[in-house]
Amino acid sequence: MNDIPTDTRTVVVEREIAHRPEKIWRALTQPHLIQEWLMKNDFSPVVGHRFKLRGDWGGVLDCEVLIVDPNTTLSYTWNFTHDDPAFDLQSVVTFTLEPIRIGTRLRVEQAGFRPDQKRALGGAKAGWRDFFEKLEQILPQVD
């Protein structure tokens, strides 16, 4: 088994969104909405629930819900196993929702990138920005 280094890297992406935290929370926790902006899934907002995220690129992420604090914090593992161990990723994704005057400050933090995973770190930075763009596009249709 690989030892997980303690000197891991973290990606943080923040965005101010002109919708209330309750609406964004629904988009973060309802499977049919998660599929619209992130990936196909069998998510349930229950601590300990194990689920999979399935990318259009064919990859599957193994996840487990760690924190569910409605309209405030959602956290889950984001683990990817690859044929080449250099591409394996054991990480944790945490969403934080903060009410602000115009709506919500949404922050995502993905922690756990090894120092040798610079490409994955860069990909996550770009990926979360793209995911947030898609999230903002679907929010007007969320009840």
Rank of each mutant, 00 (worst) to 15 (best):
T6Q: 02
F51T: 03
G59A: 13
F87G: 02
K118S: 12
E133P: 00
G127K: 12
K134V: 05
L53Y: 01
V142K: 04
A27N: 02
A124C: 15
F113Q: 06
G103H: 11
D62C: 14
K134Y: 01
R9P: 05
V60I: 15
H82Y: 09
S91V: 03
E14Y: 15
D7P: 10
E16A: 04
L74E: 11
S75D: 08
Q137W: 00
I4V: 08
V142A: 10
K118A: 12
Q30L: 04
P140Q: 13
D143P: 15
F87E: 11
G55H: 07
F131A: 11
L106A: 07
F43E: 10
Q141C: 03
V12D: 02
L74W: 01
R114G: 09
R107W: 08
K125W: 05
L97R: 04
T10H: 00
D83R: 06
F95L: 03
F95E: 04
L28K: 00
F51D: 04
L28H: 08
H19M: 14
L33I: 10
D84Y: 04
C63V: 08
F43S: 00
E98K: 08
T77C: 09
D84T: 15
G122W: 10
V92G: 00
E64S: 07
R26Y: 00
E98P: 05
V12K: 04
V108N: 05
P5K: 03
A27V: 08
V47I: 04
S75G: 11
G123N: 10
Q141I: 01
D3F: 06
D7G: 13
S75F: 04
P45E: 11
G103C: 13
D62K: 10
L97M: 08
N2T: 02
Q35T: 15
V47T: 14
P5H: 03
T104N: 12
D130E: 12
K125Q: 12
I67H: 06
D56T: 08
D116R: 10
R114Q: 15
K23M: 09
I138F: 06
T10S: 00
